[in-house]
Amino acid sequence: MTPAQRRSIPLRLALHALMVVLAAVFLFPFLFMLASSLKTNDAIFADLESGRALLPVGDLTGANYVGAFARGHIGHYLANSVLITVVTVALGLVVNSLAAFALARLEWRGKQAVITLLVILLVVPFEAISVPLMLLVAKLPGIAFGADGVVLTGSWLDTIYVQIIPFVANTFSIFLFYQVFRDIPKDFDEAAYVDGATPWQVYRHIIVPSSGPVFATVTILQALAMWNQYLWPLITVPGEAARPLMVGMEQFFSARKTAWGEVMAYAALITVPVLIAFVFFQRWFVRSVVGSGVKG
């Protein structure tokens, strides 16, 4: 029996009512976005002063979505964003879990200093380092596949990898992995080492299999961060070839008059897939955090 089934019917009704009211409070910008994405600019503003703003009423049009695709190159930017997110998260899972393994399960000099450093680095806001980092990557040698084959270039600017490589190693992810790895009983790896296993085998066959959920947690957190990346590509990726979704939206704000209908359509196209993915994955995410060290 779950707790809810023991509750009295009036209480459950009251809780339900509360949940519905709260849902309205949390949902209104989302409804506004969806409704507005189907309206003309004039209609959006005309409806703004009434409840109509949240409802798909009046003369509805799909033109904003057509515009978002035609003008916004949304397909191309979407591909870039998916690629950046997937590659960063995949590399990040490996790199950060390996580091956390070294910190949590291996004995070495200087470990405590590295852990302290990580905790401190956790609070460095990205805005604080973005300009020096930009100056840095502008001058890092890169590679490109041009007409002459592989060529060395003098800069990371305007590439896909400038949006990936700096973000693979992530203090927050290492921190999450570290907490989980630390709490796995040591008996297993001690036994494995006695049997002559290498640290790699311990990582691969003991630690990773027993902490699957935290990989899920890190995936969600890093994926959300990468998907929403804005400031960094804005300053390092001037061209359209490597431009991600979030920066793509900027062009609808660039004109002197914002094309709100298209902005809303574009935003809906960015947001809805993430929400669908969320509905799909949320049970998994919930379970995963249960398994991770977060719950203590």
């Binding site: 790199v95 390996l98 580091a99 590295v114 680095l121 693979v168 190693a169 203090t171």
Partner: peptide
């Protein structure tokens, strides 16, 4: 083990 992440950071 730590190298890739530490170098990146």
């Amino acid at each position: 083990f730590g190298a890739p992440a530490l170098i990146g950071l």
